[in-house]
Amino acid sequence: MAENIIIIGGGPCGLEAAKTLRDLGYAPIILEKKQELGGHLRKWDRLFPEGVQAKQVLKELTSGLKGIEWHTSVDIETIEKSRKGYTVTLSTGVSYNSPALLLTNGFKLFPAEKKEEYGYGIYDKVITNADLEQYFAKGKDNVIKKPKTIGFVHCVGSRDEKVGNRQCSKVCCATAVKQACEMKELFPDATIYSFYMDLRLFGRNYEDMYLTAQKKYGIRYIRGRVSEVSEDIDGSLIVKAEDTLLCKPLRLKIDLLVLMTGIVPENSSASLAQQLNIELGEDGFYKPKDTILEPCMAENNGLFMAGACTGPKTIPETLSEARAAAVQIHNYLNKSWISGIL
């Protein structure tokens, strides 16, 4: 009978890892705390750099799950380590055993209301990148009504020690460039500003997206972080920043402000780390055994981790890690069985 492998988290990473493990002859069990599989991908409309539909990717990932057991709305009560591996017990009393455990519990988006000065949840016309994706997906929104001037704010909750996040969230710059172009497609007469500290367009074809945004769509990039947002008497927003390339303070009146919320560790990471004795980095993400040579392996035996639970990642990076982790689990089990450890 095929050996069970427990995967905590049913987002893109967990799903891809499960499929690889199944193909390697195991019987993976995905435990997902949300009501549905798919993670943050469910909330997104299109993916950079080419604008592939998230729905399409999600469909691909969530289909062909034959041979994979999955449970949603799961609440994990305890995880115990034994000589034979791990026992995960749910709040319903059900337990699962597995010789190895894979953590793919991902990330959460920075709660934008924590940056009080931007007024998310207070000023009607301040929305987040996730809200905008919902608008793209649904095609309607109570706030977005033919905006003439739109602002994008990069690094909301990223590179900001004031809110306790020193790290760069890596994917928001590319997302902001993508979303700005999409808005210009929808509202060709709108003027769109993007406030950035540094533009970190690291991946293949991302620089081309930026060039297109500048040249084809005329997105105006302003180097400077938004310091404060307020609401004017007509309900529009007033944004303060410095144009740091001109060394001048700037005041901009706009109809819609999109906050590019960053990537922070998922709430469950801290408690899982405590139960499993995993070290957390200063940024709150899991510390792997070796960031260069063993990014998918924990210090303790039989424990593996992949995807955004070890730091911000793009979807293709996450999927590659999922496959890598699955193969490493396979190798680990083979070695352990041969040597008689398990």
Partner: peptide, 10 residues
């Protein structure tokens, strides 16, 4: 202006 947002901060 969303009053509930302010009430939350308060």
């Amino acid at each position: 202006m969303i009053k509930e947002g302010k009430v939350k901060i308060w």
